[in-house]
Amino acid sequence: MKLVELHARAMDLAVEVVDTVRPDQLDLPTPCAGWTLRRLLEHCVGQHQGFAAAARGAGPDLALFADAPLGADPAADFRRTGADLTAAFREAAAAERALWLPEIRDGGPFPLAQALGFHLVDTLVHGWDVAAALGGAERLVAAVDGDDALADALLAVSEAVPDTPEARAPGRAFRPGLAPDGEGRFDRALALLGRDPAWKA
């Protein structure tokens, strides 16, 4: 399966998780240190919008990736911007377009496959963050581990993320890696990115 379709599958799984969020749960803590569920979803929606703009040819404008305020229905915001990003990635694939991503290293431009990999990891890991904040990510983990192509893509990109003091410093996307404790590919990817698969609020 092409990476653009694997990303679409990852987005569908994340949407399933976010669709279960209730308004009274937005102040719950998440595995992202110091971030509530509201803050995490604002980040995700902002990233959807930034990556979509990049996929449609925007230059290295950091403001395009700013966190986005949520409306009355945060799940609808996540679903709408996720669907737009999926469409934008498909447009970029048809145009064979590289993407400027100003938050990553020198900003690029990055080949589309690399940009897709970046956001596929972001989508699944933040989907897990949401599910863990809600009290259980087992269903999401099982769905990913049961999809060999998706689980392999997640693990391959996670293994390629630099684990150096500079790359994993406070404020960066990921914390220093942890020793994998489990056989599942999703759990191994989480540990590589500094997430504890057993995290509880």
Rank of each mutant, 00 (worst) to 15 (best):
P111H: 11
A93H: 13
R90S: 04
R90F: 01
P102S: 10
E96V: 08
G136E: 06
V141P: 00
A93F: 02
L99D: 12
A133F: 06
E96W: 03
Q114R: 14
L140V: 09
V130P: 00
F110N: 06
D122W: 07
I104L: 13
V130F: 02
L124M: 08
H119A: 00
P102C: 08
E103F: 07
A115M: 07
A98G: 02
A131G: 09
L112N: 12
Q114A: 12
G108T: 11
A131I: 07
A88G: 03
Q114M: 08
A88D: 11
L116Y: 05
A113D: 15
A143W: 05
G127F: 03
E91D: 14
A132S: 13
F89Y: 15
F110H: 13
G136R: 10
E96Y: 00
A98R: 14
D106Y: 07
A88Y: 04
D129K: 00
L101M: 08
A95R: 15
L140P: 04
F110G: 07
G127S: 09
G135Y: 02
V121P: 00
L140E: 10
A142C: 03
E96I: 02
V130S: 07
A98P: 02
A143S: 14
V121T: 14
A131P: 05
A113H: 13
D106Q: 13
L124S: 09
H126F: 02
F118H: 13
A113G: 06
A133R: 07
F89N: 05
I104A: 09
G117L: 01
W100S: 14
L124I: 11
R105M: 05
L120E: 08
D106M: 06
A142M: 04
L112K: 11
A143N: 06
G117D: 08
I104C: 06
G136S: 05
P111T: 13
L101V: 14
A133E: 10
A115G: 11
V130Y: 08
F110A: 07
G117T: 11
V121Y: 02
F110M: 02
G127A: 06
D106E: 15
E103M: 09
H119T: 13
L140I: 09
A98E: 15
A133H: 08
A98K: 10
A137V: 02
L120C: 06
V130I: 14
D122C: 01
W128P: 01
P109Y: 07
G108L: 02
A92F: 07
P102E: 12
P109S: 09
A113N: 11
G107Y: 04
T123V: 10
